[in-house]
Design a protein around this nucleic acid. Structure first.
Lengths: 199, 199
DNA sequence: TAGATTGTTAATCGATTAACAATC
DNA sequence: TAGATTGTTAATCGATTAACAATC
């Protein structure tokens, strides 16, 4: 039975070993005094907490460039998020095949969600359609939405939305870059200093 | 001169007003006692800190579905991240036009970076090419990289990398969903209770 | 001047971690 | 038993916030 100590895990995770023990303990994951934690047990329990031991069937709505990119991204399926259905409203797209899947009309959403057990909807439509699509997704009973719109979506309580906004990601990136550049020049934004500040 | 109190800002931000005053103060953003903070001044100063008052020219590398989606996303330019150049290595793609830009061969990267003042490279290539492209990007002198690969990239110190992994985003989404569902059932992962835990 | 609000001190709160009894 | 390591208590550290003097 392979085991691992809180010290080893803490080093790998870059945290204090007491914190790691406390955290595992709060998740009701226990070890054996004098021995350590059973590796398989920890993996399995953390998998349960994270929901990794479960499949989450995905529908992608909007078969533009982004939707196609998602449909073709094999990494999703490998990580437990198989893309099982594609939807669009354009007549020219409905019925065509993308990444081995036939594009369906959005009207079919409720039936397909029910049939395939869709748990996650990825909204990859133009921004002006996103809220309307979100409403349809919620009505169809899908409990989780990933969206790429800059604006946040309105959904009823209990529906979980996550937003990935590429402009925001670039914002964060450029913020760190700016800070790195400022630090090089000897400026410092985040501690109280008497020195100069850019601007 | 329109002004706003720390109390008003704190309410909007959902934080304590003393914390807000302390935070502004640590950014060297001051107000006037008895009056409040000058709205324009706060906006401008925060803009400086975030780097929002600056343009960050972007190059997209890899003109697949994801690259095309990025090239066509007008939201980037609106937020200060104009996509000025597209690169690929496929002969069939080089020279074609995408979103009004001519796709260039990756060989041209150093020259174009220099000419257009590219500050951010977005790597939208297949994962197996990502590290090699990152090396080229770094060699060309681009200080910031946004990548969509699951694996992290190796870059020298000073280069800032941000990774957007869609599988991870779905992971986070499903984690919250699972937690919401568990909470509905009366389970609780994150506080110490004597009650049952899923599993 | 009276009222309002900042900027900051000092108190409080919560999170981290050292330390060690329990125990394998 | 001796050595190792957990689980948790108690101390420490840092972050939040109440409170208030400064001052517009």
């Amino acid at each position: 039975m392979a085991s691992v100590s809180s010290k080893q895990l803490a080093e790998l995770a870059g945290v204090n070993s007491a914190t790691l023990r406390r955290d595992l303990s709060s998740l009701h994951i226990g070890g054996t005094r004098g021995v350590g934690y059973d590796v398989k047990h920890v993996l399995h329990q953390i998998g349960l907490v994270l929901g990794v031991n479960q499949k989450w069937p995905v529908a992608v709505i909007g078969v533009g460039n982004l939707g196609r990119a998602l449909a073709n991204y094999t990494g999703l399926s490998e990580r437990g998020f198989p893309v099982l259905a594609l939807f669009d409203v354009e007549a020219a797209k409905v019925g065509t095949k993308v990444a081995g899947l036939t594009v369906r009309h959005l009207d079919q959403l409720p039936a397909v969600v029910n049939q395939l057990g869709i748990l996650v909807a990825v909204i990859a439509t133009p921004p002006e359609a996103a809220q309307e699509v979100a409403d349809a997704v919620v009505a169809a009973g899908v409990p989780s939405i990933l969206s790429f719109t800059a604006d946040s979506l309105h959904v009823p309580e209990g529906v979980v939305v996550r937003r990935v906004d590429l402009a925001t990601e670039l914002q964060i990136l450029s913020f760190y870059q700016q800070r790195a550049t400022a630090a090089e020049r000897g400026f410092e934004y985040f501690v109280d200093v008497d020195g100069p500040v850019p601007g």
